[in-house]
Design a protein around this nucleic acid. Structure first.
Lengths: 226, 226
DNA sequence: TCGTGAATGTAAGCGCTGATTACACGATTG
DNA sequence: CAATCGTGTAATCAGCGCTTACATTCACGA
């Protein structure tokens, strides 16, 4: 079969030079994997994880529908790769914010951590969603995501422990405080994603101000009173 | 077309009586809409909203793939009907719990409200998910869900206002407290759904105990200190 | 320099899905 | 009894994930 020899434009001699000089489509893409992840990241940003289809990613990469399966065994694997990329960025942002916070005030560092979390989640809602809800792919197979996440939790616990050591906390049950704090920021971020704040535009300034106020309310609640 | 006249089994006279006496499948289902919603509710319970397909619901109802579209114009409409049913049950549970709480202790009522919320969400995770994340269908068209939700929020605000009037609250910014409280319970419920508590089985006793502890931590944080 | 095999693309097709359309059947009603 | 409306079926469409067979190109060793 294959009656129309469309792709092999240059069937003449000097094939290689011709291809380099004029052909718009080299047979091999170069870095299709990377391009597919970028396309899928864009799709996630546009319509959430459910809007990601292998075919659409292939389409945007200018490649046939079956090509992605050379790089990802399944759609889930593509989603997972996207999630790993998003998680990498999320963690980098959190750590950058924490690095800029003074070590002298552990509770203030905790606040910085929460703020960075909230801000990233609200500015990248679909990316946050993809690294959050585990129904979208198999988190057990995504070791990078799990370890990144565990590291962030450990960071939180350390910060809380330092705050307690400095006498800044009311409760001694750090585990409880940590879970409550996570639930608060996670809940706020997801309420934003899930459309529970219809008045605010996504990542609007008002939403971020409210996020900050809610975080402060919580921190005052766990802090030792002056 | 239609060369094979398979379906018209009883082309003989006395068709009606024959059907009533022996036919296992009356042509008309009776209450297909209700059966479809139940089937879809079951599908949601088994694999989440994404696991719901119109065909599968039709299959379980013992009906052809196109039949559901007589009752629901689209898959989203079916999902929406399921969500309305779930929301109805959710609200009923919350209100029952609140009705059983004494009016003399508004902050205690607030706690009951939060507990009922958390318990229902953790015992019906997929149903909670379907009424929570607005990406699954168009909430603007589901007036029943929006109004139910608004009523629950109003109930929360009333309870908080009563608690403040009784001098039980530290902060006067009730709006902030209400949003923070919602974020906390919502976040906890969603973390459970989204698999952030891998050790606990869904709706395990430990999870519910932790939920209660976290709620109490929050309430202590907003309460006036003794 | 030239084969040759591995890597990576295409083409075709399977079964599934949501959705639409034309038609068949049954019950209600005048 | 006949008309009609509500509700089922059958057939069909396009899009999806995924697989298989084949085409093309690259990289490496004789």
């Amino acid at each position: 079969m294959r009656p129309s020899a469309k792709p092999s434009v240059a069937k003449s001699p000097t094939t290689k030079r011709r291809r380099r000089a004029s052909a718009p489509k080299p047979y091999h893409h170069g870095d299709l994997r990377r391009v597919l992840i970028d396309a899928a990241l864009q799709l996630v940003g546009e319509g959430g994880a459910e809007a990601v289809s292998v075919r659409e990613a292939a389409r945007r990469a200018g490649v046939s529908p079956g090509a992605p399966f050379r790089h990802f065994p399944s759609r889930d694997a593509l989603i997972q790769a996207v999630a790993e990329e998003a998680q990498r960025r999320f963690r980098a942002e959190i750590e950058a914010a924490l690095a800029a916070a003074p070590a002298s005030d552990p509770l203030g560092r905790f606040r910085c951590l929460g703020l960075a979390y909230l801000r990233w989640a609200m500015r990248n809602p679909t990316h946050f969603e993809i690294i959050s809800s585990r129904r979208l792919f198999d988190h057990d197979q995504a070791a990078a995501i799990s370890s990144d996440n565990a590291e962030l939790i450990a960071l939180t616990e350390q910060t809380l422990a330092q705050a307690f050591a400095a006498g800044q906390l009311r409760s001694a049950d750090l585990k409880q405080v940590q879970i409550a704090g996570r639930a608060l920021v996670y809940g706020f971020a997801r309420m934003n994603i899930d459309g529970h704040f219809p008045r605010w535009g996504v990542a609007g300034a008002e939403a971020e101000r409210t996020a900050e106020a809610v975080l402060d309310l919580f921190i005052e609640g766990i802090a030792k009173r002056s």
